[in-house]
Structure formats: C-alpha cells, structure tokens
C-alpha cells in the first residue's frame, strides 16, 4: 500500500499517534522550565552576592552545563547520578527513566537561566535598591517588590527563546528510551520502516508549538510594556 520514500497522506495517519505522546514532551518542558527557573534564580543570586565557595562552584557548574552537549548530560545523569548515590547507600537504579530526563533538562535549564537572570538583575539601576532601603524595605522586600519585577521584564525575551530551545532539546530524550513525541517517531519507524512521515509529523508539532510560544511571549511582553510606558 505504501510506496516510495515519502507518502504525505501517511503523515496525517501518524500525527494523532505522535500527538498522543505530546503530554510527555510537555511534562518535560514545563517541569524543567519551572524547576530550572527556580534553580537558575538561586544560581544567579549566588553569583551576584559572590557567596564564597558557592560562587566558584556555580561558575564551574554553569560553564559545564553550557559547554557540553545535552546528549552527554543525559547519559551522565542517567548513569552517573545512580552510581554516585549508590556510594552513599541510596539505590535509585529502578527509578523511572523520565525522572532522570527531567532532572537533566532541569539542571541544564538552570545553568542557562542563571546567566539570563544575572544579567537582568544587574541591569536594574542600583539606585532603586538604595531608595527602597531608604524607605525601610528589607533586602528581601526590595528584591521581591522592586528588582525582580523589573528584571523579569528585561529577561522575558530571553526566557521565551530559552523555552523554545528547550522544547527542541527534548527531542533527544528518546536516546534514553523515553517515548515522547520523538520517541514515538522512532517507535513507528522501527515497526513500519517508514521514517520520513514521522519526522515531518514531528516537525509540524514542534513548529506549531514554537510559533505559539513566540506569539504568546510577544503578547505578554507587549502588554507589560504598554502598562508601564504610555
């Protein structure tokens, strides 16, 4: 029935099967984004306040995560973390693979977000913090009320790009045997010997999501800017 390298109609037969695994992809993206953002903020603060020891550790960590391919990180976490924990008597070898995948993307996201947040926090003029202390705000109140809201607006475009990049990066989770959208492409391919239709289907899904993200962030940014100026 199916002939040739590529059959457009088959794409639409595969698409629902790929979409059924979209929740797995989204689970990775959403969890890694939220946890990674929190971790990134902590790293950024460690770096900004030049916390002794932790600052140097953060520098090494960020360089490593930004300087190695995500596939390498996936395997290091999947095999390395259980190995390390085994030495202190904790056995996590049987834990779900998805846990290690989400952990890897979280660690990776935190490193990239740390630099985005650090730059954004530094770009808020320090005079505003002084004014906040002068009217009696504590450091934490100043951060929460004055610095963070402005930094977030500055960081927003980078956060949008980062989210789109993370979405694409999840396409490597299948290397650990996760059946997300890309995992499903490979599963279909090995069962039917038809590869291209699956990839085209995946392309449609990823492209649609990326464009939606881009538009969404653009709209949030525009709204916030309009509120603040004119």
């Amino acid at each position: 029935m199916l002939n040739g390298l590529f059959d457009p109609a088959t794409v639409f037969i595969y698409l629902p099967r790929l979409l059924s695994k979209l929740p797995v992809t989204l689970l990775i993206v959403v969890t890694a984004t939220l946890l990674g953002a929190a971790g990134g903020m902590l790293l950024a603060l460690v770096r900004l306040f030049r916390t002794p020891v932790l600052n140097q550790a953060a520098v090494v960590y960020i360089s490593f995560m930004r300087g190695t391919p995500i596939v390498v990180q996936l395997f290091l976490v999947f095999y390395g973390v259980p190995w390390l924990l085994d030495h202190v008597g904790i056995d996590i070898n049987r834990w779900d693979k998805l846990f290690f995948v989400i952990l890897t993307y979280t660690l990776n996201t935190a490193a990239f977000k740390a630099e985005v947040f650090r730059a954004a926090l530094q770009s808020v003029p320090s005079g505003q913090a002084e004014a906040a202390y002068a009217v009696g705000l504590t450091r934490l109140q100043c951060f929460r009320r004055i610095i963070a809201p402005q930094a977030l607006l500055i960081a927003l475009p980078s956060l949008g790009t980062g989210l789109a990049a993370l979405l694409q990066d999840t396409s490597l989770a299948y290397t650990l045997g996760i059946i997300d959208v890309m995992g499903q492409v490979h599963a279909i391919a090995s069962g039917t010997n038809r590869m291209l239709e699956g990839y085209v289907g995946a392309a449609i899904i990823f492209l649609t999501l990326s464009v939606a993200l881009e538009k969404g962030f653009g709209r949030i940014e525009a709204n916030l800017l309009i509120k603040r100026h004119h």
């Binding site: 505003q128 002068a134 009217v135 009320r145």
Partner: peptide, 16 residues
C-alpha cells in the same frame, strides 16, 4: 531608617 527619609540626586524612583 524609619526616622529618616532620603531624596536622591538621580530621583531613584521605582520604575515599575
């Protein structure tokens, strides 16, 4: 600080 207030050269208003 609660008993003092400061007016700055560069105003330092909270831009947000």
């Amino acid at each position: 600080r609660k008993q003092t207030a400061m007016v700055f050269q560069n105003y330092n208003l909270f831009n947000n």
